[in-house]
């Protein structure tokens, strides 16, 4: 009685295959497939109707999608640049601290320990036009205007950007601080002897050395910010009247509120391109910067 047995390596790898298939592969294929159907959550039978590239064509000509797309790129650009500047500044100052630096470093991480949902609620309160902290302070300082922080399109974007930066600047600060710790001291002293002022030393010696660290932070944060959802959803819900709509709030509205899952999935696949582009861009920059300072590219 001989039974054909599966090869050992296959048996050993089988659990991993099953898990990966269940959590990655099948959802991926399913979502890709459904993006070619008019799948509505409320009418499951629509899943079996093939409409080809209809969803994609619709998205590409949809002004709402493109304004959310553009707003997300703008949001990314502003947030990443400001976080870089603030993070760099904080790291440089932290590097000068000689007493209590460990404690400060821990405190620096606090904003990252909060759930983004809670950060959203916190800033929703702070920027509330009626009972909010900011307007109360403004009023007690004598201003009688109640600024519509979360209602006006521009102010609302500002408020969301502010919350996002408050929460995540420390990613930059910590990574850049790690870079500063790893920095050899000799070239800095050599630069002093070579005639550099403090600014020139920073510009010509410190900054090139920090660039790889900065690009690592950029890569991490670009992926993070490109999927910004929770803070926006809590603070404005993408509103009012879509003035703060980002890709992910648009997608979740399309998929879960309007129940048009096929369309939402198609949006997802288009917007992933954005993340991939940013990642490729920063990785290129990263390996170039590493090559610059003589680390293995």
């Amino acid at each position: 009685m001989t039974r054909r047995r599966l090869p050992e390596w296959f048996v050993l790898l089988l659990p991993a295959f099953i898990v990966i298939a269940a959590v990655v592969l099948i959802p991926l294929i399913f979502s890709l497939y459904s993006s070619f159907t008019p799948y509505k959550l409320t009418r499951p039978s629509t899943l079996w109707k093939w409409v080809g590239t209809f969803n994609y064509e619709k998205i590409l000509s949809d002004a709402k999608f493109w304004s959310a797309f553009g707003r997300t790129v703008l949001f990314l650009t502003i947030v990443l640049n400001l976080e870089l500047l603030l993070g760099l500044g904080i790291a440089l100052m932290m590097n000068k601290v000689t007493w209590g630096q460990r404690t400060l470093r821990t405190i620096l991480m606090f904003p990252m320990m909060f759930s983004p949902i809670l950060v959203g609620f916190q800033f929703k309160f702070i920027f509330n036009d009626n009972i909010g902290l900011v307007n109360n302070v403004l009023q007690s300082l004598g201003s009688d205007a109640a600024l519509p922080w979360l209602v006006d399109g521009k102010l609302a974007m500002f408020s969301i950007i502010f919350a996002e930066i408050w929460m995540s600047t420390s990613v930059f600060a910590i990574l850049i601080l790690a870079g500063l710790f790893a920095m050899p001291r000799d070239p800095l002293e050599a630069a002093k002897v070579d005639g550099c002022t403090a600014w020139q030393t920073f510009r010509h010696i410190t900054l090139p050395f920090l660039m790889p660290f900065i690009y690592i932070a950029m890569t991490i944060r670009s992926l993070d910010v490109a999927r910004a959802y929770d803070i926006v959803q809590i603070m404005t819900g993408g509103g009012p009247a879509r003035r703060t709509e980002l890709l992910w709030t648009l997608m979740s509205r399309t998929g879960y509120v309007d129940a048009r899952m096929g369309l939402a999935n198609a949006m997802g696949y288009v917007s992933i391109i954005l993340s991939i582009l940013f990642t490729v861009y920063f990785f290129r920059k990263l390996s170039a910067a590493r090559g610059q300072i003589g680390m293995a590219g």
Binding site: P184, D186, P187, E189, A190, A191, K192, V193, D194, G195, C196, T197, H204, I205, P208, F209, Q292, I293, G294
Partner: peptide
């Protein structure tokens, strides 16, 4: 005076070349 105003140059133990 800061080092840059002393008109000296220095050779360091670990060479201290600018890696980039």
């Amino acid at each position: 005076l800061p080092p840059r105003e002393r008109n000296i140059s220095m050779v360091f133990q670990n060479y201290a070349l600018y890696p980039h």
